[in-house]
Design a protein around this nucleic acid. Sequence first.
RNA 1: GCCGCGGUAGCUCAGUGGUAGAGCGCGUCAUUGGUAAUGACGAGGCCGAGAGUUCAAUUCUCUCUCGUGGCACCA
Length: 673
Amino acid sequence: MTELLKISLPDGSVREMERGSSPADVAAAIGPGLAKAALAARVDGEVRDLGRPFDGDAQLELITARDEADALELARHDFAHVLAEAVQALYPGTQITFGPATDDGFYYDVMAPASREPFSSEDLPAIEEQMRAIIKADKPLRREAWSRQKLIDKWEADGEAFKAEWAKELPENEELTVYWSGDDWLDMCRGPHLPSTGKLDPQAFKLMRVAGAYWRGDQNNAQLTRIYGTGWLNKKQLNLHLHNLEEAAKRDHRKLGREMDLFHLQEEAHGSVFWHPKGYRIWRELEAYMRRKMDSTGYREIKTPQLMDVRQWEQSGHWGKYAENMFAVPDMVPEVSEDEGNAAPTVAADADWLAIKPMNCPAHVIVFKQGITSYRDLPIRLGEMGCCHRNEPHGALHGLMRVRQFTQDDAHIFCTEAQVVEEVRAFCELANSVYQDFGFTYHVKLALRPEKRFGSEADWDKAEQELRDAVAEAGMANEEYGWEELPGEGAFYAPKLEWHLTDAIGRTWQVGTIQGDRVLPDRLDATYVGEDGGRHRPVMLHRAIFGSYERFIGILIEHYAGRLPVWLAPVQAVVAPIVSDIDGYAQEVEAKLKAAGIRVEADLRNEKINYKVREHSLAKVPHLLVVGKREAEEGSVAIRTLGEKDQRVMSLDDAVAMLTAAATPPDLRPEAV
RNA sequence: GCCGCGGUAGCUCAGUGGUAGAGCGCGUCAUUGGUAAUGACGAGGCCGAGAGUUCAAUUCUCUCUCGUGGCACCA
C-alpha cells in the first residue's frame, strides 16, 4: 500500500513513481534515449544526482548536455575529482584538499608527498593520461551520507591532514556526503555529480598549468600546488576555447605596446611606465577628452603636491593602514660619499619623512579647507589628474594593468548630506556617457562595509543607502546593469559603487568608482558653514571614471586589439607614394591633412607599395592613402581603411573631410553636441 | 611577499664547460615597383647582476634582481 510519488515534469505532465525511485528511474521510464543522455536532475529547483531518490512529490527537470550551463558546471566539477583521483593514483601519499569548477574549467589543490618535489608542468601529461583512463573505466559516482566522525577518522587514517582539519570544522549534526568513484576512491563533497566518470568526454579537457596557492587562501598557511585545467562537454568546445585563448594572447597590451611602439617598462624603474611618443599621444587624447567632460559637468581642476609630510598621512589614517605600500623620502640633503660609485646615501636619525602621495584625497581636503566654505558654495567638485605612487607587492605588477606609478582621473565632491544622492546619480550619468563613447558595456556593483573599518554603523548605513538610492534614481539598479551588492568589499572609510566594464572578448575590468565618505572629512576636520550658521561636516565623494590612465589605456589596447578608433590612434593616416616621382604630391597631401589637424605621416621610403601596405596595416594605422601617377594627375587619393578589403578613390578635399570627421572625438561630433 | 617557470643582438628565439647563432628589424648599394614581405652585402652581444666550483663558466651551484603564470594584496 505504498503511496505513489507525484513527479511533475516541465511539459506539465505528472508521473507517478514508487517511493525510493530517483530521477534516473523517471528518465528510464520516459525512454532509453533520455536515460542515456541524462546527466543530472533539477529537483524542485536544486541540481541533484540522477540516482538520488526523491524525498517526496517533486518538480523534476532532467539535465542533459543541452542544458549547457548546468552540464558544464557538473562536468567541470567531475573533472576536478577525476584530477584528484588521478594524482593520487600516480603519486600515492599526495594529499588532496579542494577542487572546484571555474569559469572555463576546474582546478584542484594538492600537496605532493614529502618524498618528491612539488608537481610541475612536466607532470601534467602523465596526469592527463591517468584521468583519461579513469574516464574510460566509466566508474560509477555514488553518493553516500557519512557522519562527521566517520569522515574525520577516514581522513586521519589516510594521512589527509587538510581534509581532516576541514572535516573537524563542519557542523556536527548535519549529514555529510562523500562520493565514491567506483569502489576504490572517494572524496567528501556536497555534490551533485554525474552518474559516472564515463559521462565525461576524455577529449574535452586539458591540464593547463600548475601554480602555488595557499591552503584556505591564507598566506600564513601551507602553500599547495594548484593544478589548473580547462574542461568542456566536447572536443569542439575545448578547441574553440583554446583558440580564444590564443586570440586573447594576440591582443595582450604588453605585446601590442611593444609592436606599436607605445611604451616600455624596464628594470631600473620597475612598475613605472616609459611612455613613447605614440603611446603618450593616446594618453593626451584621453586626458583632453576627460578634461572636456569634467569641465562641462561642473568640476574644477587643481594640482596638489607629490610629497607631503608623513604626519599628514598619519592623520588621514593611510599611514597606519598602508605604510608598507607607501614610498617615504627623508627630507634632508643626502651625504654624498667620497667614494665614487657608492650610491647608498645615509639617512640622519632625526630626518623628517615625507611620503609620496599614494592618493589625492587628503590634499583635496586641504584645498577644500582653505578659507571658509558656505553651504551656498556646495557642492564643490575638485578634479585632478593625480599622479600617485604605491609600492605594490612585487608579484602583483602586471604590464600597464598594475603599476607603481599611475595617474588617476580623480575628483572629490564635497557636498551636504542632502546633495549626495543627486551627485552620485549625476556621476552615474557621466560615467555612462564616457563608457559608451569607448564602446564598453558595464555592470554596476555596490561594495559594502568591510570588516575592518572606520566610522559609525549609522554612517555606514546611511552611506550605503545613499549609493543604492542614487543608482536606483539613475535607473541602473537592475539586471540590465548587472546590479549586485558585494558584502565586505568596500574601502575602510566608505562603501563603493564600482563600474565593471566588459571588453570586446567578454572579459571584465573594474575601472570607475564613486565612494561616499564621512570618515576622512571628520579625521581631517573639513567643515562648511550651514544655513543655521553652525559648522557642519561635508560628505566627500571620491570618484574616478578611467581609474588610472595607465590601466585604462591597457584595457583599450586589448579591447580594440590595438586597432584604436581614429580619434585615439597615434598615427591616423599614412600617405604612401607608389613611385618616388610622386613624393612631391604625397607631401602636398600630407601638408593638407596636417593643416586639417590630422595626425599624418608620409612614407617616402624606397619600398614597394606592397611592403608599405603590409607594414602600416600591421602597425594598425587606420587609414592608408596610396598615391600614384593617376592620383597625382587627378588630385585624388586612394584610401585603404584598416579592416576593409577595398580601397576608395576620392578627391583630396573629400578625403580631408572624411578623415576630419573620423578623427573627431565622440564628444565633439555634431550629433553629440 | 609566497610557489613554479624564465632572462642570450632592438624584437622573437636556438645553442654550448673551451667567451656565440638564425629570422625579423637596422645600415649601405642596386631596384621606381598599383594594395599584406625586391635582392645583395654589412654592422650589432660583458649570454640579467654578484659570488662560488673549475685550468677554463654564457653553460654547473648559491644569492640577488627583473619578467612571467598563479596565490595573497589592491586605499
